[in-house]
Simulated scan of single mutants.
Amino acid sequence: MKDNNALGIQYLQEGKYEEALAAFSEEIEQNPENAVAYVNFGNVLSAVGELEKAIKFFERALSKDESMGTAHYGLGNVYYQLEKWHEAKDHFELAMKKGVNDSDIYFMLGMTLLQFEQPKLALPYFQRAVELKPEDAEARFQYGLCLAGQGLIKEATTEFELVVESDEEHADAYYNLGVAYAYQENRDKAIEMLDKALDVQADHMLAAHAKKILTEN
């Protein structure tokens, strides 16, 4: 007997959304009380931008099993995309309480707190995201920005260096390295990093402006 949930997840990972919806739909028909199938269906709808429909499926999952942390996580993601920050934050926190504990949820909660302009509160979430998934360049970049925002320039520099090691095309990380080295009065290194930002993204206005300031002085 085929496992529709496993099949649907495979299709979702391959970007075959119609096939994924068909598999999860069949699972729901056969096992209407299976909360996981509703979450999976909601995840596909979310992936294709059917956000309002996705909300209904995540809520249906919770009506079947209120301890379903992944349903709260799905709702958090949808509300984040809809820029409903309070709802996003509430659902991410509920997801954590109900056992979702991977790097993605720490990253998303950190991103949500940034929308409230609370980088100091976001910082430990990005730190945890990076601890759980060291290769996540975007989480590390946000962690570096929060460190820099708290005046921890050397620590931020270390993080930005690690970002560009893993992603040589990360123009914003090079730009922030340039600024960080300028703060540390290492003008040559600062210009080198700003040049790298401009190599990756020729129209990086902030990098061009920072370089202009450094080369004119």
Rank of each mutant, 00 (worst) to 15 (best):
Lys2Ala: 08
Asp3Gln: 04
Asn4Asp: 05
Asn5Gly: 00
Tyr11Leu: 01
Leu12Ile: 09
Gln13Cys: 04
Glu14Tyr: 01
Gly15Val: 02
Tyr17Ile: 09
Glu18Thr: 14
Glu19Gln: 15
Ala20Lys: 02
Leu21Cys: 04
Ala22Val: 11
Ala22Thr: 06
Ala22Leu: 13
Ala23Trp: 01
Ala23Lys: 01
Phe24Glu: 06
Phe24Gly: 09
Glu26Trp: 08
Ile28His: 10
Gln30Glu: 13
Asn31Gly: 00
Pro32Ala: 00
Glu33Leu: 10
Glu33Tyr: 09
Ala35Pro: 02
Val36Met: 12
Ala37Phe: 02
Phe41Pro: 02
Phe41Leu: 11
Asn43Pro: 03
Asn43Val: 07
Val44Gly: 03
Val44Cys: 00
Val44His: 00
Leu45Gly: 06
Leu45Ala: 05
Ser46Ala: 11
Leu51Gly: 01
Leu51Ala: 05
Glu52Val: 09
Glu52Arg: 11
Ala54His: 10
Ala54Phe: 04
Phe57Leu: 01
Glu59Ala: 06
Arg60Thr: 13
Arg60Ser: 13
Arg60Pro: 00
Leu62Asp: 03
Ala71Cys: 00
Tyr73Asn: 12
Leu75Pro: 08
Leu75Val: 09
Gly76Thr: 12
Leu82Asp: 05
Leu82Glu: 12
Glu83Gly: 00
Glu83Lys: 15
Lys84Trp: 05
His86Ala: 14
His86Pro: 06
Glu87Pro: 01
Asp90Pro: 00
Asp90Met: 06
Asp90Glu: 13
Phe92Gly: 10
Glu93Thr: 12
Asn101Trp: 05
Asn101Val: 04
Ser103Glu: 12
Tyr106Gln: 07
Tyr106Lys: 02
Met108Val: 01
Leu109His: 03
Gly110Leu: 08
Met111Glu: 13
Thr112Pro: 04
Leu114Lys: 13
Leu114Ile: 11
Phe116Lys: 05
Glu117Asn: 15
Glu117Asp: 15
Lys120Gln: 15
Ala122Trp: 04
Leu123Met: 15
Leu123Pro: 00
Pro124Asn: 07
Pro124Gln: 11
Tyr125His: 15
Gln127His: 14
Val130Arg: 09
Val130His: 10
Glu131Ser: 13
Glu131Ala: 14
Leu132Thr: 12
Pro134Ala: 11
Glu138Phe: 12
Ala139Phe: 11
Gln142Asp: 11
Gln142Asn: 15
Leu147Gly: 03
Leu147Met: 12
Gly149Gln: 01
Gly149Leu: 02
Gln150Lys: 05
Gln150Gly: 08
Leu152Cys: 02
Ile153Thr: 15
Thr157Gly: 06
Leu162Ser: 14
Leu162Cys: 10
Glu168Asp: 15
Glu169Cys: 03
Glu169Met: 11
His170Ser: 06
Ala171Met: 09
Asp172Ala: 10
Tyr174Ser: 07
Tyr174Pro: 03
Val179Trp: 12
Tyr181Thr: 07
Gln184Cys: 05
Asn186Pro: 00
Arg187Glu: 09
Arg187Val: 14
Arg187Met: 07
Asp188His: 07
Ala190Gly: 01
Ile191Gln: 07
Met193Ala: 14
Asp195Phe: 09
Lys196Arg: 15
Lys196Leu: 11
Lys196Thr: 05
Ala197Gln: 00
Leu198Met: 15
Asp199Phe: 10
Gln201Ala: 12
Ala202Ile: 00
Met205Ile: 13
His209Gln: 14
Ala210Val: 01
Thr215Lys: 14
